[in-house]
Design a protein around this nucleic acid. Structure first.
Lengths: 347, 347
DNA sequence: CTGAAAGCGCTTACAG
DNA sequence: CTGAAAGCGCTTACAG
């Protein structure tokens, strides 16, 4: 039929986007029917009609607008992922794992860099809340007024890696950081690395805190309490470790081994050490945390604790898609210590 | 007035989100007026009314839904940024720069990892198109059917770092890659590094191609053409450089210097070199590209070309907010060679 | 199996 | 300066 062809061509050429009404008109059905086809409700549409509508959809290359649907349903197919530092490949790797998994269900991941800043986090939270995001995945959340506000209003949260701030009941996925800290103590002591120091992360991070406490308590229990002046604190960045290194590396009573709150801090410390002629691991043994994807390539000298970041995606997916957001369940993933044996060879 | 207080408390407690109609009712005005206040159209509302509405908005902690507005206006306050590899801190740094700038105008950046894959890029494009995204910023776009389709329909594109595929007319921001490649040749030759090799990136990347061509042409012009068997190709990753290194490092006629399409490739090559006892830069001089933020910390032995990634944000912002999307203008940023002088000291 | 109508929460001519 | 009404593009009771 030349008229129908014509109509279709006109529409596609007109530039203005094709709507469900156009499809309905050209297929000779109601919007309702088109909507049913769109949502694959086969039981509600005859086979013949279904196919006819499908064909028109294809001919027009019609793509339903997410905005209309989301507005009506009170929910979009957006999922937000907040993370404290996009420059840290460890966080990016978790984001990747989650993105791949959610894509399979037609969910779009919106990444949001909070830079560990409560104000930025709150601003982004407000914005995305107004998009009726299906779930907020908080990778390393910061305690903030906006976060507590949203939690009170039953916003769907999912905390990853770092526990929700005290008083917020929401599901958590991550490792047992206290146990991991303890494991490091048990790793070092038998190797005669008992004169240790520790660089903990900022206190806002429950993960860093637990790691530190597990390490400290276990070192003490094993008879080698950490000297107070061998305890430092740093941002979770390379620069943080490097700057702090200036105070550690030169010092008289420099410890024989140092446990850092994450791998990036270790990189910075290592750089300072090599600049000052301190050999790693011969003079200074460094332990990090996360098993950053870069370690394999750039830090064979580093012993680290592997957080199984590939596992986050599937679990997150099952929770969001299965919509079985548990009230405040905790899913504890396994961790283990990674050592690379060509330590001294490469660097 | 106790009734109003009561009404407000009821609303806030009800859980269901507050709408513009609620605000209008409680303020005793029409939705139109509330909308005007929301959009700061002071000229259209009396001072007294404006303040009254503002107060109700605050009391209710009312946040307009982006979906309603976007649907009506045919445009959301979302901006999409496509990037080929979230694990590359160079790309993340560009994303950061853009995000910070756009935030100032209430625009939300949606990050989208294409993994250099046309199908993933097209899928994401379709999804985000349906959110009426305000602009698609393509950092390292891949040529694909969906991209050409969208371009034909006048989708607002902005290409960054890597030129738009041939035939697509859209604005571009980036450096002059051909000139940069030439500069590297002019850097190496006076230093007696004339027996060179080159690792170019995948052919899909116009940036990599131009760098290679500029380097090749200039080496030839300076009387030191690159030997064909000293030309390789690699994905833009550490692993790519490391794997390729197996074929380069051991070889009899290994070149004295190698120019890599990006810094990550250099990292991989360097690792392979050190593992095989080849010293960098004494035995093998390595030049990379991008001046990856990690270089400062992890690769002081590397000479690289700095792409001024901090400058992308402000320019992108002025284009999107000023909505002066030029038809197909090119904004060429300056580049320069970076060398770190503690090369041999640290690593 | 099918459709007319209402409604999600905004903004925007239009009229006063 | 203010508001009633239409409309953005979908989905969903509801009725047949």
């Amino acid at each position: 039929m030349p008229t129908r062809r014509q109509a279709i061509d006109d529409l596609r050429a007109s530039g203005g986007s094709v709507t469900i009404a156009d499809v309905a008109r050209l297929a000779g059905v109601s919007q309702t029917t088109v909507s049913r086809v769109l949502n694959g409700q086969r039981g509600l549409v005859s086979r013949a009609t279904f196919r006819r509508v499908e064909r028109v959809i294809e001919e027009l290359d019609y793509q339903p607008t997410a905005l209309g649907r989301a507005l009506r349903q009170g929910q979009s197919n957006l999922v937000a992922l907040f993370l404290p530092d996009t420059q840290n490949p460890f966080y990016s790797a978790i984001a990747d794992s989650i993105e791949v998994c959610l894509q399979q269900d037609g969910l779009n991941l919106v990444l949001c860099n909070t830079r560990e800043d409560a104000a930025m986090q709150d601003a982004a939270l407000r914005q995305l809340l107004s998009f009726r995001v299906r779930c907020f995945i908080m990778l390393g959340a910061v305690d903030s007024a906006g976060l507590r506000d949203a939690a009170e209003r039953n916003t769907p949260f999912l905390f990853i890696n770092r526990l929700p701030p005290a008083g917020i009941a929401a599901p958590f996925i991550g490792i047992d950081n206290y146990a991991a800290g303890a494991d490091i103590a048990r790793y070092l002591v038998p190797r005669a690395l008992t004169e240790v120091g520790v660089v903990s992360g900022p206190s806002r991070s429950s993960a860093s805190r637990s790691r530190y406490e597990g390490f400290r308590d276990t070192m003490a229990a094993l008879g080698h309490p950490i000297r107070p002046d061998n305890t430092w604190q740093s941002e979770l960045t390379i620069k943080g470790g490097y700057d702090l290194g200036a105070a550690i590396i030169g010092r008289a009573g420099m410890p024989r081994a140092i446990f850092c709150a994450n791998d990036l801090i270790s990189y910075g410390l290592h750089k300072r050490a090599t600049e000052n002629g301190v050999r790693v691991p011969d003079d200074l043994f460094i332990v990090g945390f996360d098993d950053n994807p870069l370690n394999r390539w750039l830090a064979p000298w580093l012993v680290s604790v592997q957080v199984p970041y590939q596992e986050f995606g599937p679990i997150v997916r099952s929770i969001i898609v299965g919509s079985n957001l548990p009230a405040a369940d905790q899913i504890i993933l396994p961790h283990h210590i990674v050592e690379r044996h060509n330590e001294t060879a490469a660097d």
